[in-house]
Simulated assay, not measured.
Amino acid sequence: MNELPLYLQIADYLRRELAGGRYRVGQKLPTEAAFGRELCVAVGTLRKSLLALETEGLLERRQGSGTYVKALPEAGKYPLFHLELNGGGGEPSGEILGLNLAPTTQLSPAQHIRRRRRLDDTWVAVEDIWVRTPDTLQLDWITPALYQMYRERLQLWVARVEDKVGLAPVPAHVGEYIEPAHAAYVERFGLDHEGQLIEYSQTWFDSQVCHYNARWS
């Protein structure tokens, strides 16, 4: 169980959103009421999160106007890891291949998600994902933004990830979609603020069409 106060979890999430480029310096944030609905938290809790970021010099609250981005987190603090097309970028989407309650040696109880990933119009990867929950996920909850779904539906916050990239034997279900000779492998461990594992995933991607990118911002 994550015992870090909710407002600090939200503050850390917002730091990562700032680092990831969701908001620009000088940009006005949504109203507290709208932001609270988006994050599924009470306005009072959100205010404490915003105050923490204001104290750090990242936000500026202007009387009668709203809250604005004043600065971004220091470079190198928040790494972003993802797949990109070999030509650069790619809008993510996907197809769910399987969804069931199936613990793994890394996580139990856990819900298992198997999905095929696409960047723009190109199929690039197959993923097996386990998230720590005894509850059954609904198919219509699953979007490309899984971490947002974890937060809103399961109250789980991924604070950091550890990725291991390399080669591994290609399972039969992956070989149906990716030529084994071209399949590279990413093993991900998603941890909460206490260092507890809440997500484990295995991703096989087609190295002919995409690559794994680690970028610090």
Rank of each mutant, 00 (worst) to 15 (best):
Q202E: 15
L99N: 09
G90F: 03
T203H: 05
L53R: 00
G64S: 03
Y177E: 00
V124T: 14
L59E: 06
W141D: 07
D128T: 11
Y150S: 03
T136W: 02
I10K: 02
A11M: 08
E32I: 12
D121M: 09
E54R: 11
L51Y: 13
G89H: 09
S49H: 06
Y200S: 08
L39H: 11
P180H: 03
K77A: 01
A183I: 06
G195E: 08
A125N: 01
Y78N: 02
G44S: 13
W157Y: 15
G44F: 03
W130Q: 13
I10L: 10
L99A: 07
P144M: 00
A183H: 05
D121E: 12
V174W: 06
L4I: 15
E38C: 05
P92V: 06
G166Y: 09
A71K: 01
E127G: 07
F81D: 10
V165C: 07
A11I: 07
G88K: 12
V165Q: 04
R114W: 05
K70R: 15
H82R: 15
D192M: 14
A168I: 01
G166K: 07
Q63Y: 06
H182T: 14
H173I: 15
E54L: 03
Y13S: 10
R24D: 09
E127N: 06
A183T: 07
V41T: 04
R62L: 08
N213Q: 15
G21Y: 03
S217Q: 04
E91L: 14
Q63H: 11
T133P: 09
L58V: 01
W123F: 13
G190V: 11
R61Q: 05
C210N: 07
R16P: 01
G57D: 00
R132T: 03
G44C: 05
R61K: 12
E74A: 00
V41R: 03
Q155L: 13
R115C: 00
L99K: 14
P79E: 00
L154P: 09
L18G: 00
L6V: 15
T203D: 02
V126M: 04
I129V: 15
L39K: 08
V41H: 04
I142W: 04
L46I: 12
V186F: 04
Y13Q: 10
Y150R: 12
G90D: 04
P103G: 03
E60C: 11
A75W: 00
V126C: 10
S65V: 08
G195P: 13
T143H: 13
E95M: 04
A34Q: 13
G175P: 02
W130C: 13
D206V: 05
H82T: 08
E60R: 14
E187I: 07
P5G: 11
E127P: 06
D128I: 02
A125S: 15
L137I: 12
F189V: 09
L101T: 10
G76T: 04
I96K: 02
G175I: 07
D206W: 05
N100L: 09
V131N: 06
P171E: 05
Q148G: 09
